[in-house]
Amino acid sequence: MIERRQVAIWAWMALAVGGGWALVAPLLGYRLAHHGWGRPAPWLIVAATLAATLAIAWTFAFARVAFNRFDEFQRALSLRAWYWGAAIGIAVSAPLYVFVALGGLAWLFPHTFDKGPVAARAFAAGYALPTLFQGAGCVGVALWLRIARR
């Protein structure tokens, strides 16, 4: 039998993820309907950025509520999964990053990916952004925990 605690956790998580998507989905749908994959209008870029900020705040708030409902074993499991999952994910992606950034995809699919150095730089920046922010977030939380525990 499924425990009530578990149902509540799933409900909060569904609210976190579903609510976050609901905040950005209309603008993404509008973009695809009116601009396809082409360059969107400036107002749409600003609106989508604001919607994404709201969506992340929403998702974090409700994910925190769900996390607070975990018992200590579930918290330990979740923290370990995030720590090792993220570390392994980055480790696995690093050689793939080198392969793609140096033009490996153009080598494999010359007609699709041979877009030159601009595409390679865009890919490198796109990879670096979340990776650097993840590193910065990790250092920030570690420092905060050290200060908070004094």
């Binding site: 578990q6 200590e72 074993f73």
Partner: peptide, 26 residues
């Protein structure tokens, strides 16, 4: 396990993990 988990206010999963030695409680 469900009875014990209710008395301890933890999940049944946690009771199982402690019993099987996969988790040491705080």
């Amino acid at each position: 396990q469900a009875d014990l988990s209710e008395r301890l206010d933890v999940s049944r999963q946690s009771v199982n993990a402690i019993e099987t030695g996969r988790y040491d409680p705080s």
